[in-house]
Amino acid sequence: MDKSWLQQQVLERLAADLLQVEQAVSVAHEAATHEENIAENKYDTLGLEAAYLATGQARRAEAIRQALVQWRLFRPQPYSASQGIQLGALVCLLGADEKQQQIFLGPEGGNMKLLIGAETIQVISSQAPLGKALLGKAEGDEVTLEVAQVKQQWEVLSVT
């Protein structure tokens, strides 16, 4: 699997997400400033609620813009057995349930699932719990993670 192509897929998804959020910001801003939403009494909070929504959407848009910058600057490196799994690794894991899972370890802000043909690739950051647990591991290593008091285990089958 070509990591540059995966990176391009993430960038396209982030760009689409940004467009959608920017449209939501515009709608929320319009609702917050529309003359029909001016408060008539202290209990009339529609305009205030729309302003809060617009602010939250604007923050989300900025987070996506930051992620786009990080992903544009990101240069996935080939796997080095001496360093173990690092940012940019494409990892195949085998779970305790005998199911395989593909993980692409990237920079912040790209947490998503990509459907490539019949295959699903989970994109996570090195700051995600599983991302942190994978760093430095090599093929054949076991990775253990406890989430909500449930222990999960995987074996690293392959890394590229």
Rank of each mutant, 00 (worst) to 15 (best):
M1E: 05
D2G: 13
K3R: 15
W5T: 13
L6Q: 00
L6E: 00
Q7A: 01
Q8V: 01
Q9N: 06
Q9M: 02
V10Q: 00
V10C: 08
E12Y: 03
R13S: 14
A15I: 10
A15L: 12
A16S: 15
A16Q: 15
L18Y: 15
L18F: 05
L19F: 04
V21H: 06
V21G: 10
V25Y: 09
S26H: 14
S26R: 14
A28E: 08
H29S: 04
E30T: 13
E30S: 14
A31P: 05
A32Y: 12
H34S: 15
E36S: 15
N37A: 06
I38W: 09
K42Q: 13
Y43E: 02
G47S: 13
L48K: 08
L48S: 03
A50F: 14
A51P: 12
Y52A: 11
Y52R: 15
A54K: 11
T55D: 03
G56D: 10
E62H: 11
A63E: 15
I64H: 14
Q66E: 06
A67R: 11
A67H: 07
L68S: 04
Q70W: 03
W71M: 05
W71T: 07
L73S: 09
R75F: 00
Q77M: 00
P78S: 03
S80H: 02
A81V: 04
Q83F: 04
G84W: 03
G84A: 02
Q86D: 13
L87W: 05
V91A: 10
L93E: 07
L94P: 08
G95Q: 07
A96H: 12
E98P: 04
K99C: 04
Q100A: 09
Q100V: 11
Q101G: 03
Q102G: 00
Q102W: 09
I103Y: 07
L105N: 07
P107Y: 05
E108Q: 03
G109M: 07
G110F: 08
G110Q: 02
N111W: 07
M112E: 14
L114W: 05
L114I: 00
L115Q: 11
L115K: 07
T120F: 09
I121V: 11
S125L: 09
A128D: 15
A128H: 11
P129K: 11
P129T: 10
G131A: 08
K132D: 12
K132H: 14
K132V: 11
G136D: 03
K137D: 00
K137G: 00
A138E: 02
E139Q: 02
D141S: 14
L145W: 06
L145Q: 06
E146Y: 02
Q152G: 10
E155A: 11
V156P: 03
L157H: 01
L157E: 06
S158A: 01
S158T: 03
T160S: 05
